[in-house]
Computed example of a mutant assay.
Amino acid sequence: MTDTTHDTTARRVRHFVDAGYPDAGPVEAAVEGAVYRLGDGTVAKVWEHRQGSDLRRMQRFYADAAAHLPFDAPEILTVEDIDGVPMTVERELSGAPLARRIRTDDPEVLPEAVDCLVGVLRALAAAHEVAEVKELPVLDEERPLWEGHATFGSALADLVERRVSRCAGVFAVQVHDFYRKRATLIEKLRSLPRADEAVVHGDIFPETVLVDDELRPLALVDYGFLSTGGDPRFDAAVTAARFPAASERAPEITRRLTARFADEFGYAIDDLLLYRAAYAMATSDAFAPGGGDEHCAWCVSVLEDPAVAEVLRR
């Protein structure tokens, strides 16, 4: 933790203590910001890249999701402000992250763990009330992903085009034939037919799925990074790739999960690989301007995957 981060954390904890939460303390840094346990069954989440209006829309989406999903969604109790940064106070959800229950670097992943992921993906694919979530911006952008678009593929193509240019230099050096791959990906995304729209979480992996002792899903958390309404194949594509830990067996695990999801839902593997490439290009500099961090290196590995490269060669 840097000195600046430490000072910010200490200042925020003092804010919560002064506001009547004497047991407040930091929990973890989520993708969208820092989380603090307040000690009364609630947590505070400080959103670094969101406006209050976005969070109130997220509040309405969560309330709707809770009525349509078979597991819990976060519940935003209030939207507030701390040091000029928007903050939500949310009900603390039960369950432990799936990552604490299993080894994500083992190709022989427990069948119960894979069944858990299948159940989460199936539930999201069946959640078609997407009006609120389609109005959300993604990553650190200010406008909704869908603004000016009639299809998910077109919206995603524009996102890729905007974002990947920010670390094109890194990709040009590390990804074989990068510029042709980028052009092919954008063209293929734009030509995708309209799909049935469902809730897309955008970043499901073992830390965002809360489970019980039998690995049954109790809640899905950390919406907001790439949450929107769109093609449920996107979540399946990302989940299969984000599930395994960084190990030499990760490609094998990803291939197995991709095949399982394709078989379970009747998805074409080429479509999953296409969406995986889109995720890699769109998020490559999500955590470090210009790329160059561990996540960017992971995105390079996705684009260098022979199966992904083959899809972008056709």
Results as ranks from 00 to 15, higher is better:
Glu80Met: 06
Glu80Asp: 11
Asp81Met: 04
Asp81Lys: 03
Asp81Ser: 00
Asp81Gln: 06
Ile82His: 01
Asp83His: 04
Asp83Ile: 04
Asp83Thr: 01
Gly84His: 09
Gly84Val: 00
Val85Thr: 15
Val85Asn: 06
Pro86Arg: 03
Met87Leu: 15
Met87Gly: 07
Thr88Cys: 14
Thr88Asn: 07
Thr88Val: 10
Val89Pro: 02
Val89Asn: 02
Glu90Cys: 13
Arg91Val: 12
Glu92Asn: 08
Glu92Asp: 13
Glu92Trp: 09
Leu93Glu: 01
Leu93Trp: 02
Leu93Ile: 08
Ser94His: 09
Ser94Gly: 08
Gly95Met: 00
Gly95Phe: 06
Ala96Ile: 12
Ala96Asp: 05
Ala96His: 02
Pro97Phe: 04
Ala99Trp: 00
Arg100His: 15
Arg100Val: 05
Arg100Lys: 09
Arg100Trp: 09
Arg101Asp: 01
Arg101Trp: 02
Ile102Tyr: 05
Ile102Glu: 02
Ile102Val: 14
Ile102Asn: 00
Ile102Ser: 03
Arg103Cys: 07
Arg103Gly: 06
Arg103Tyr: 00
Thr104Tyr: 06
Thr104Gly: 05
Thr104Met: 09
Asp105Ala: 15
Asp105Ile: 11
Asp105Ser: 13
Asp105His: 10
Pro107Ala: 04
Pro107Gly: 03
Glu108Thr: 05
Leu110Phe: 10
Leu110Asn: 08
Ala113Thr: 06
Ala113Pro: 12
Val114Arg: 15
Asp115Pro: 00
Asp115Phe: 13
Cys116Asn: 11
Cys116Pro: 05
Cys116Met: 11
Cys116Glu: 09
Val118Leu: 14
Val118Gln: 04
Val118Phe: 11
Gly119His: 00
Gly119Cys: 09
Gly119Phe: 13
Leu121His: 04
Leu121Glu: 04
Arg122Pro: 10
Ala123Gln: 08
Leu124Phe: 14
Leu124Gly: 02
Ala125Phe: 13
Ala125Leu: 07
Ala127Asp: 08
Ala127Asn: 09
Ala127Lys: 06
Ala127Glu: 13
Ala127Met: 12
His128Cys: 07
His128Glu: 14
His128Ile: 07
His128Thr: 15
Glu129His: 04
Glu129Thr: 01
Glu129Phe: 05
Glu129Arg: 07
Val130Ile: 08
Ala131His: 14
Val133Ala: 11
Val133Phe: 10
Val133Ile: 12
Lys134Pro: 02
Lys134Gln: 13
Glu135Lys: 12
Glu135Arg: 11
Leu136Cys: 11
Leu136Met: 11
Pro137Ser: 05
Pro137Phe: 13
Pro137Asp: 05
Leu139Thr: 12
Leu139Val: 13
Asp140Gln: 13
Asp140Cys: 13
Glu142Met: 12
Glu142Tyr: 10
Pro144Asn: 07
Pro144Val: 09
Leu145Lys: 02
Leu145Thr: 00
Leu145His: 03
Leu145Gln: 01
Trp146Ala: 05
Trp146Ile: 00
Glu147His: 06
Glu147Tyr: 06
Gly148Lys: 04
His149Ile: 03
Ala150Phe: 11
Ala150Lys: 10
Ala150Pro: 06
Ala150Thr: 14
Thr151Lys: 08
Phe152Arg: 12
Phe152Asn: 14
Phe152Thr: 10
Phe152Gly: 10
Gly153Gln: 08
Ala155Tyr: 02
Ala155Pro: 01
Ala155Ile: 14
Ala155His: 01
